[in-house]
Design a binder for these strands. Structure first.
Length: 236
DNA sequence: AGGCCGATCCTCT
DNA sequence: GAGGATCGGCCTA
């Protein structure tokens, strides 16, 4: 609507980006509340190859060591280390780490400084109008394959795939401020309306496996691990 | 100083 | 459905 006009007046804050930037206050809340609210929002990465962006359709909350009971599956569980120190900083920053020596995973830090809750971004639905072909190349897929049914799902359905598609690495992106209009990596609200969120058990962990801290947009084609479709409704 | 092991993905049966 | 790739970081000694 009027958004285009506003973008033209402030090109440095949102030129070419969909919707509006999420404020830091959005992230300054416990992760089990931030995670479901992040569904439907857009993760946007500005690169030399254009805008790589997708809608968040799956996310997991990891609780900080201050929580009761503490979350034994969280990286911050045993307190700050060189790897996880971003989580103990202010909310709204990217925590990107290496997993299995080959892949990266991206989290969003939550809560005030000193509290290390976070949200793992597990799956995106590629956003129409962005450089989807580049995301496919980043994933080692031929852009032509995208026309085939089911292959959109291969782009960013999974935390490692998500980072690969958007070109996110620990070296370049860990610690970036997601709520800064000058940042190449942002989370934005393009007005997409979420009607229903399901909570399920988290994936790929050994501790606290039955805590219902994984949140999905039910029925979305890009949600990972289709086996775990059962879950409880979440009130937003 | 060294060993262990993952908030994963892909391939093969 | 199972197993291998692959390595930085964290824990223990």
């Amino acid at each position: 609507m009027e958004e285009n006009a506003q973008v033209d007046r402030q090109p440095e804050t949102g030129a070419g980006l969909p919707g509006r930037l999420l404020a830091r206050a959005f992230f300054d809340a416990p992760p089990q509340l931030v995670a479901p609210r992040l569904l439907g929002k857009v993760l946007a990465h500005r690169t030399g190859a254009g805008l790589l962006a997708g809608r968040i359709v799956e996310a997991e909350a990891y609780l900080g060591p201050h929580s009761d009971p503490p979350d034994p599956a969280a990286h911050a569980h045993r307190g700050p280390t060189p790897r996880n120190c971003v989580l103990f900083g202010p909310a709204g920053h990217a925590y990107v780490y290496t997993i299995y020596g080959r892949y990266f995973c991206m989290n969003v830090s939550c809560e005030a400084e000193g509290r290390a809750g976070c949200v793992l971004l597990r799956a995106l639905e590629p956003l129409a109008g962005t450089e989807v072909a580049q995301m496919a190349r980043n994933r080692g897929l031929a852009p032509g394959d995208l026309t085939a049914a089911g292959l959109v799902r291969q782009l960013a359905s999974g935390p490692g795939r998500l980072c690969q598609a958007l070109g996110l690495t620990r070296r370049l992106h860990n610690g970036l401020d997601l709520a800064n209009p000058a940042s190449p990596l942002q989370i934005r609200d393009d007005g997409y309306a979420v009607t229903e969120v399901l909570a399920t058990a988290r994936i790929g962990i050994r501790e606290a496996v039955d805590w219902p801290l994984r949140f999905v947009l039910p029925g979305n084609r890009c949600v990972s691990g289709a086996k775990i479709a059962i879950g409880k409704r979440v009130l937003l």
